[in-house]
Nucleic acid binder design. Structure first.
Lengths: 142, 142
DNA sequence: AATTTATATTATAATCGTTCTAAACTGTTG
DNA sequence: CAACAGTTTAGAACGATTATAATATAAATT
């Protein structure tokens, strides 16, 4: 569990003013035992249901994008109509359960290192992401 | 180069009526030497610029999705605001050039086989996709 | 601690890609 | 060729996201 003052420094250190909205969002996102995945909608709902204060949707969008830009969140794109964010910012891969629409982190003991033998000339690799879609056996696959 | 009658059978075989709109779209997508990537917008623009006939945007959406469902196209999701389709329906991975927004197919000699050691219990793997984001050296990476 | 300045929040409007609708049209079957 | 199911169409509707511009707040300056 983090103290409020830790979030204040975290924000200040990255040039973001520690406003009460941002601190509340920090609390919701980072005061947890485990990292997790969420959509903007999940977050907005979480805040409005569990707290008296209401934060404008625009602010939630702005803050999530600011946190992403500062590297406090990663965005994971599964499909064009669903954008997930991940509080686990370490390099890792995902399983996506097509039955439940749930995203599950992979550990290194689940997916081995991806061997990139040749990169595009003159370019640097900025990320390597594996997405393993899974579904129950009865489901049709593509 | 395919003949029109080949597209007619292809469509009939998958339960799609060979309408002139669908045949035109087949021609644009599949009468090529190489597979390629496109967005719905690219396709609509291509048709309206290069042909006299105009096809309604709704029809383009319907047809692309029908072709995807029948397995003639693969959808590739790079970011929530851009949905690409690929006429290469074989299993393969991609490089995504963040400078140019260009998607490039990987061959097997570029990315080795992804080793999935443990799958989610009771689930079947429906696809494994690797996306390697690249950018010029000067670009900042995340 | 008051003033100034820059930054952030807000509600709402605007935008954009996509899907829906319902009427007109076309391909297929008998 | 009649009947029917499937398809196309323009435009409306939708939903997620972004822009706007007024207000509020935080930080810097006096």
């Amino acid at each position: 569990m983090y103290k409020n003052s830790e979030f204040v420094s975290k924000l200040r250190n990255s040039g973001l003013r520690p406003t009460k909205q941002r601190l509340k969002i920090c609390e919701v996102l980072f005061n947890r035992d485990k990292t997790f995945h969420f959509t903007i909608n999940d977050l907005a709902k979480n805040i409005s249901e569990n707290f008296n204060e209401k934060i404008s949707l625009a602010t939630i969008y702005n803050t999530v994008h600011a946190f992403k830009d500062k590297g406090y969140l990663k965005e994971i794109t599964i499909s064009s109509d669903k954008s997930y964010f991940d509080t686990n910012i370490t390099k890792h891969h995902h399983f996506y359960d097509e039955d439940t629409n749930l995203l599950i982190d992979c550990n290194d003991n689940e997916i081995g290192k991806v061997n990139i033998k040749n990169n595009i000339t003159g370019k640097k690799i900025s990320s390597v992401e594996v997405l393993v879609r899974v579904a129950s056996d009865t489901q049709n696959q593509n």
